[in-house]
Simulated assay, not measured.
Amino acid sequence: MPHAQLTLISHPLCPFVQRAAIVLLEKHVPFERINVDLSAKPDWFLALSPMGKVPLLKVELQDRADTILFESTAICEYLNETKGSISLYSDDALARAQQRAWVEFGVAVLADAWQFLNAQDLAIAGIKRAALRYKLHQLEGKLDQEPYFSGSAFSMVDAVFAPVFRYFDLLSPVVSHPIFNDLPRVSAWRSSLADRPSVMSAVEDDYASRLQQHLVNQQALLSGSIRNDLVAGLSR
């Protein structure tokens, strides 16, 4: 593939943006990042995004009109197919299909986690917490290798789940521990992802404080549960 100049159009809190950023970083691809205020979407952004969502990836190639890719799955598949020599999927067709299925499962886990974080009453929080725990138990039964989902090789499944687990790394242990209690394999996987350089670099330094402010604005029950050391910008 000819050299392409890439621009990731993003929002600082979007987990789907993080997925694309992780893949870019895993592939060691230089890119520019532009954040958009999704509460006041600029006209130029709406003209580029058919669904009014992030991420977008602007691909600039010589002798070719600029192309805008939307939807994180399409962006990640393009990057995986065109950048770097190592794929984030298995070479085996059956294992590759299984990985893609678990990628979709990760979207459902993300939905439960996000709704739990943003819950404004105890009933909804309890329902979403239970749904999340159920899915994590399903993952616990699947995981039989380490440190990553498919063993020693970091995969697209890892890129999908890392932004989900990040939420719980930021929450007080009083909140996060009961969710991961008795799930040693998921907990070990979560820890390995938290230490991955691409995962750490996929968000900006003020991510914790931004998430806290978002929860405050949403009047979420967990608005006061973000760890103070991380909000203050201290290292883990």
Score class of each variant (00 low, 15 high):
98 Q>K: 09
75 I>A: 03
98 Q>M: 10
42 P>F: 02
60 E>Q: 04
74 A>F: 08
31 F>Y: 11
48 L>A: 09
97 A>I: 13
54 V>R: 00
45 F>G: 07
31 F>C: 06
34 I>C: 11
40 A>Y: 06
48 L>Q: 13
41 K>D: 03
74 A>R: 10
86 I>P: 08
62 Q>H: 12
65 A>L: 06
86 I>E: 15
63 D>E: 15
68 I>A: 07
41 K>F: 04
60 E>I: 04
39 S>K: 05
29 V>W: 09
34 I>S: 09
32 E>L: 08
45 F>Q: 09
44 W>V: 14
47 A>I: 02
68 I>M: 12
78 Y>A: 13
42 P>A: 01
28 H>A: 10
30 P>T: 02
92 D>N: 13
42 P>T: 00
28 H>C: 06
50 P>K: 02
29 V>R: 15
30 P>H: 01
80 N>Y: 07
60 E>A: 03
56 L>M: 03
80 N>Q: 06
71 E>R: 01
78 Y>P: 07
80 N>V: 13
34 I>F: 10
36 V>Q: 00
53 K>V: 00
37 D>Q: 02
49 S>C: 01
82 T>W: 12
98 Q>D: 11
61 L>I: 02
96 R>N: 13
71 E>D: 05
70 F>I: 04
35 N>Y: 05
36 V>Y: 01
34 I>P: 06
74 A>D: 10
49 S>H: 00
65 A>H: 11
63 D>G: 13
36 V>A: 01
97 A>S: 14
68 I>Y: 14
62 Q>T: 12
96 R>F: 08
30 P>G: 06
66 D>V: 14
39 S>H: 05
70 F>H: 15
81 E>F: 00
41 K>L: 04
88 L>I: 14
46 L>N: 10
51 M>F: 15
53 K>L: 02
52 G>E: 03
62 Q>L: 15
78 Y>L: 10
61 L>A: 04
36 V>P: 01
44 W>P: 04
48 L>K: 12
63 D>R: 13
42 P>D: 00
91 D>A: 12
92 D>A: 11
36 V>G: 00
70 F>W: 15
63 D>L: 14
39 S>E: 05
91 D>C: 08
64 R>I: 08
61 L>M: 03
84 G>N: 09
41 K>W: 03
88 L>A: 09
81 E>C: 01
49 S>W: 00
85 S>N: 15
34 I>A: 09
48 L>D: 07
70 F>A: 12
72 S>M: 07
95 A>K: 08
51 M>T: 12
61 L>Q: 01
90 S>F: 08
47 A>N: 09
82 T>S: 14
82 T>E: 10
89 Y>A: 06
52 G>H: 03
63 D>M: 11
38 L>M: 08
32 E>C: 05
52 G>D: 05
84 G>W: 09
60 E>F: 00
